[in-house]
Simulated assay, not measured.
Amino acid sequence: MPVETITAHGVLIADHSQHMIDIVAAMLRHAGRRDIRSATDAAGAMFELKRRDFEVILLDDGLAGTDSVEFVRRLRHSEDCRNRLTPIVMMASMPDGQRIAAARDAGVTEFLRKPFAAAHLETRLEAIRKAPRATIETDDYVGPDRRRRAAPDLGTGERRER
């Protein structure tokens, strides 16, 4: 029986398609990731998320067993889940603006439109690693700060010259 290796860089891929899981896992292995777990439905994903820590979650918008946006919302508000603040990259085949906004408002960190290249996935993972965003917790929202850039200091001096 193989022994499970758990690292600080674990990735969970939650997708209804085992074929897509295999493709994304191959992309991650090519990028040097070795600690990869997967789930094909919401129950399996939640089992993995409560079992151990992950560095990032790759979540398909069509995950079996639940609405993925609602899954993110429940995860972010779940006080007993060790991965409630873990960065989430949502993957979707046919997202529209409303769905992307709903995912962002539920607490998704990054978004990937399928099909995507390995370079696109690596770019999202690098953005999460290089520029982690602070966590915001309110009654209505738990997740990454949605602001991506620092606001200029508008409180000093005149904004325009006379």
Rank of each mutant, 00 (worst) to 15 (best):
A14Q: 06
V69M: 01
V72A: 12
A42E: 12
A127M: 09
H19K: 08
M1V: 15
G107E: 12
M94Q: 12
F71L: 12
S78H: 05
V72H: 03
A14M: 05
E126M: 13
D145E: 12
V11A: 14
S68N: 08
G65C: 04
F54M: 14
D60Q: 01
S68G: 15
E48D: 10
T7I: 13
I21Y: 03
V3G: 09
D140W: 05
R84E: 05
P144W: 04
G107V: 08
R51I: 00
P95K: 06
Q18G: 13
L63H: 03
R99M: 14
A117N: 09
R129A: 15
A131R: 10
M94A: 11
A106G: 02
P2K: 11
L154V: 04
L58H: 07
R162M: 09
I57Y: 01
A131Y: 10
L12G: 04
R146G: 11
A134I: 06
E137M: 14
V56Q: 06
M27Y: 15
A131S: 12
I23D: 07
G143K: 07
M27Q: 15
R33E: 14
A8Y: 12
D53K: 15
L49F: 05
D41P: 00
H30P: 00
R52T: 09
A101G: 01
I128W: 01
F71R: 07
Y141G: 06
A103N: 06
R104N: 06
S93A: 15
T86G: 04
R162I: 12
V24H: 06
F71M: 13
G44L: 01
E48A: 14
Y141M: 07
R29I: 10
P144S: 08
E158F: 02
R104M: 12
L85I: 08
D53T: 11
V56A: 15
T86C: 11
I128G: 04
A134G: 10
F47I: 13
M91R: 04
E79F: 04
D96S: 05
R73I: 09
D80G: 03
E110Q: 09
A8C: 06
V24Y: 04
G97M: 09
E4W: 01
R148W: 02
S68L: 04
P115G: 10
M46D: 14
D105P: 00
Y141S: 07
A39L: 03
A64Y: 02
A106H: 00
L85Q: 10
P144K: 09
D35L: 09
A117F: 03
V72E: 10
V24C: 08
A134P: 02
A42Y: 01
V89T: 05
G10E: 13
T5M: 11
P144I: 08
D80W: 00
V11M: 13
I36D: 08
S38I: 01
M90E: 08
H16V: 13
D15H: 05
R104F: 03
S68F: 00
R133L: 12
A45M: 03
T135P: 01
F54T: 11
S17H: 03
A118W: 00
S38A: 15
S78C: 09
R37S: 14
R33S: 12
T86Q: 05
R113N: 10
D60H: 03
A119M: 02
E79K: 10
S78I: 01
A119K: 02
P144E: 12
R76Y: 03
A134R: 11
F71D: 11
E158K: 08
V3I: 15
D145R: 10
D139G: 12
V69N: 02
R73F: 00
L112H: 03
H19A: 14
E55G: 14
